[in-house]
Design a protein around this nucleic acid. Structure first.
Length: 487
RNA sequence: GCUGGGUUCGUAUAACGGUUAGUACUCAAGAUUCUCAAUCUUGCAAUAGGAGUUCGAUUCUCCUACCCAGUACCA
């Protein structure tokens, strides 16, 4: 959800300003490669109607070869390996970075040692002079290690005592002292891949990105990114850091497991992870993509007026970073359902019938489209999802086979039954008929409802009979009679 | 711990120095009805605390509290 919302805001911003929305796959962590994730992202965006202008071709594949429509290809960072090394070397040559030969084990040991004495180990201006890198080792030794070993990295040489003044489109002016920052790894010899920081800056520059709208978790690394643009001498894009999506109850950000615990999806589409666990998706849960997009847009943003139901086009027109809130938004599953209900109501019966038919088929019901539409007209207002059409009133398609015991005891008495039968047999207006006889309206009507639906609550009698017909209604009433006689 | 960010009804938010602090979801009550929903009406409910600036602070400044993020050869 969080990822889709970020993509949505980027998309809305781009479209509003006549820009292009580019999809780039940031897969520089070979350890964390997840099969199927890329196709999933594209399918999910596509379902939401967030279609990239660049990066993905008509068949839904990430583009690898540059073309007129996709001039910045390849769009997968793992296919851009060759690009990054030169930029990393450029930074070393300019004195903004250096080679580091400390092994992960060595660094882990230092962190552990520092932690044991209640301190935190930071690779920075204070410690790099005592570590194994091109700043401390003799030149010939550096040359040798560079040539003969493969586990070295290029680290950013974070300056000491500088204040980086930044502007965020959502948070305003932010200042950070570089002395609190560390020497981040930019490039790894082991897999010849950059880390996020280098790859992101290089690609944003190469792909002519003008606005970076991303999650708040990136705010702490914004100074590094500013410095990286400065080091390269590139014009930097504008930045906006979005508030996080929080758990509906308790503290903390929304996590994958919260959905299962609290009964709502956190994924746009069903997701099956490598451990074989399935996470529910909004699509499979029956949400309309328009509703999903709408509710996502309002998680941390509002149009400044009192509109709440907005189409993608309306969102594009109204979106503004100034109206994005600074604080995290607790997700409210109830409101999410409300959105879907609103969208369901706006849809035509024909449209809904097409969506309902597969469900009917699964229940073994075969009937014509006109009847399905008629039924939908009657039950539309009591549904949140298309699937509710069935659970709300299966009796519009199949006769009840059993009766709710409590209601049977209350309304299924021989006395009320006799009245119900007479009323329905008359074929006259039921209310008028019952009133003219001065019979108890509620009891007799509920007895009829019991016969028709199997329970004492549900749709109006008129509505039910207008669907199933007088003949079927009479048949069901007589079936109830048999049931009463048996017991 | 350190660094940064945040804090208006239960939730999402409006009010960008002057309002009886608005709206939506949820919840409650009433109306309606053959029941249940739906619908309509009404109601409950908030500026974290403390200093300051100001004629006047939800809004600006500072302090405290709490929440969140970052602190990886992850993104």
């Amino acid at each position: 959800m969080g990822g889709v919302r970020t993509a949505l805001y980027n998309y809305l911003y781009a479209k509003q300003h006549g820009g292009d929305f580019i999809l780039r796959i940031e897969d520089t962590d070979s350890q964390r490669f997840v099969p199927g994730a890329e196709a999933y992202i594209i399918e999910a965006l596509n379902w939401c109607g967030i279609v990239p202008d660049e990066g993905v071709d008509e068949s839904g594949k990430v583009v690898s070869e540059p073309s007129a429509k996709h001039p910045h290809a390849p769009y997968r960072q793992s296919e851009r390996r060759a690009i990054y090394r030169a930029y990393a070397e450029e930074l070393v040559a300019k004195g903004w970075a250096y080679y580091a030969f400390d092994s992960s084990e060595e660094l882990a040991a230092r962190r552990a040692a520092a932690e044991a004495s209640g301190q935190t180990f930071i690779y920075n201006y204070e410690t790099r002079g005592a570590l194994r890198n091109s700043l401390t080792l003799p030149a010939d030794e550096v040359e040798r290690l560079l040539a003969e070993t493969t586990d070295w990295t290029v680290r950013f040489k974070m300056p000491e005592g500088r204040v980086v003044a930044m502007d965020d489109l959502i948070r305003g002016h932010v200042e950070v002292s570089t002395s609190t920052l560390d020497d981040k790894v930019l490039w790894k010899r082991a897999d010849e891949l950059p880390t996020y920081h280098l790859a992101n800056i290089v690609d944003d520059h190469l792909m002519e990105i003008t606005e970076v709208i991303r999650g708040e978790e990136w705010l702490p690394s914004l100074p590094l990114h500013y410095l990286l643009y400065e080091a390269f001498g590139w014009e930097r894009p504008r930045f906006a850091h979005l508030p996080l999506l929080l758990k509906p109850v308790g503290n903390g950000k929304l996590s994958k497991r919260d959905g299962d615990k609290m009964g709502f999806p956190v994924f746009p589409l069903n997701w099956l992870n490598s451990e074989g666990e399935t996470y529910r998706g909004y699509r499979e849960d029956g949400y309309f993509p328009e509703a999903f997009v709408n509710l996502l847009a309002f998680l941390g943003w509002n149009p400044g007026d009192e509109r709440e139901i907005m189409s993608m086009q309306e969102l594009i027109n109204a979106f503004s970073l100034e109206h994005v809130s600074k604080s995290g938004a607790k997700f409210n599953p109830e409101k999410a359902k409300w959105y879907n209900k609103e969208y369901l109501r706006m849809k035509s019966s024909a449209e809904l019938a097409a969506l309902y038919e597969p469900i009917l088929k699964a229940h073994g019901v075969v009937c014509d489209r006109a009847y399905v539409e008629k039924v939908i007209d009657v039950i539309k207002d009591r549904a949140t999802f298309v699937a509710d059409f069935w659970t709300a009133a299966p009796y519009l398609f199949v006769a009840p086979t059993e009766y709710v015991e409590k209601d049977l005891a209350k309304f299924g008495t021989p006395e009320y039954y006799a009245m119900a039968l007479e009323a329905v047999e008359s074929g006259a207006d039921l209310e008028e008929f019952i009133r003219s006889r001065e019979w108890p309206m509620g009891k007799v009507m509920n007895c009829i409802r019991l016969a028709l639906t199997g329970s004492g609550s549900g749709l109006g009698i008129h509505e039910i009979i207008s669907c199933i017909g007088q003949e079927e209604a009479l048949r069901r009433v007589r079936a109830l009679g048999e049931k009463i006689q048996q017991s």
